[in-house]
Amino acid sequence: MIKRLLIIVVIILLIVIFLPFMKNVILKDSLNELSSGYVEKSVSDLKTANIVTAVVVTFRGLDTLGEVTVLFIATAGVGLLLKRKKGEKSKKSDKRPASEILQTGASFLFPLTILFGVYIFLHGHLTPGGGFQGGVIIASAFLLLLLSNINFQFNHTVLHWVESLSGAFYVLLGLLGLILLGSFLNPKFLPLGTLGTLFSAGAVPLIYSFIGLKVGSELSNILDSMRGAEE
């Protein structure tokens, strides 16, 4: 009884505290100094058509590095928690296999979906999208295989190599910027090109591709651990 009362009091208190804030928040009608600086810089210095990409990869690049690290730690945690012990064999699953149509369709759609994911993260500096979205689409392609084929097993060696190498190359590209130009994750050591073409914006597409590969392999890893290995 006391607990329930306490919960209601807490919620009412939060509403009382936050409602004036919600009422008085000033919705601005022009960009503030920082944002307009970012917009100008990303157009003139970096030549990325998608300004969000410029913010994620370059101006807030360290945040993204930390985010990828958090993702890695969470994946490791999921894998560690759901690890199957050696002796503990799961029983033969009594699920029936997917139908012929679904299996054929999935094996036809899988490469197309991977291609779409790669397209999304290669064009991250031109159109909406980028490494995170492309990585999620790659993970959903693997999910298609996991769902349509009950005996499907990931090749864990390849997955781990892709994950570690893409993470390492991401940091290496950042260090290259530090060595050549004096600031970490500076993508201007490659030619900038013209605005709106695929080979533009320096190393931004390259960095975002590595982020995309890393996110894709990590999310596939999470899905595989959550499914549980069927021996």
Binding site: S99, L102, G105, L109
Partner: peptide, 16 residues
């Protein structure tokens, strides 16, 4: 093409 391909397959899986 994508809609033409995925819509019947997903509906088939659901019905089954």
């Amino acid at each position: 093409l994508f809609i033409l391909f995925t819509n019947p397959i997903s509906s088939h899986a659901l019905a089954r």
